[in-house]
Amino acid sequence: MHDLFMPASVLFAIAGSLLFYLAAPGQRWLRAPLAPRPCRTLATVFVSTAFVIGAKGLNPATSLAVVFTAVMACLTACPFIGVLLARSRLQGASR
């Protein structure tokens, strides 16, 4: 049972990060950002849930480190993925 806590924690952290990113005005995945207030609220709930789930399976300090690492990795990768998406859209439009 404890083996499921960390993957679930990381998935919740990534889901929260994606919501934070998609609600940002500078996001490049969608034509317009999602509604900021509900998305940020839900993202905060997801990231907090990720910490709680991880703390049940591991030490709370370890859970916090894992959640922060997953959030930082996701928020770092999202803009790069946005550039790749924009580039593929431009190539698709030029054909």
Rank of each mutant, 00 (worst) to 15 (best):
M1T: 12
M1V: 11
H2I: 08
L4M: 15
F5V: 10
M6W: 02
P7A: 10
S9T: 11
V10A: 08
V10P: 00
F12D: 13
F12P: 02
A13D: 13
I14Q: 06
L18V: 09
L19Q: 06
F20A: 15
F20S: 14
F20G: 12
F20K: 03
Y21V: 14
Y21A: 13
Y21W: 10
L22Q: 08
A23P: 07
A23H: 00
A24T: 13
P25M: 03
W29G: 03
L30A: 13
A32W: 04
P33G: 07
L34A: 15
A35F: 06
A35R: 06
A35I: 07
P36G: 14
P36C: 14
P36Q: 15
R37Q: 12
C39W: 03
C39K: 02
R40W: 13
L42F: 07
L42W: 11
A43G: 15
T44Q: 01
V45E: 11
S48K: 00
T49H: 01
A50C: 04
F51Y: 08
I53R: 00
G54D: 10
A55K: 00
K56E: 13
G57H: 05
L58I: 13
N59C: 05
T62K: 01
T62M: 04
S63I: 07
L64D: 14
L64A: 15
L64T: 05
A65H: 06
V66I: 14
V66M: 05
V66L: 04
V67D: 13
F68S: 05
T69S: 14
A70L: 04
A70P: 06
A70N: 06
V71E: 14
M72P: 04
A73P: 05
C74S: 14
L75N: 05
T76F: 14
T76P: 00
T76C: 11
A77P: 07
A77W: 12
C78S: 12
P79W: 08
P79S: 15
F80H: 11
I81G: 12
I81L: 15
G82F: 10
G82D: 15
G82K: 02
L84Y: 04
A86W: 05
A86V: 03
R87V: 09
R87F: 02
S88L: 01
S88Q: 07
R89W: 06
R89G: 05
Q91Y: 00
Q91I: 02
Q91P: 01
G92R: 02
G92Q: 09
A93I: 01
A93F: 02
R95M: 12
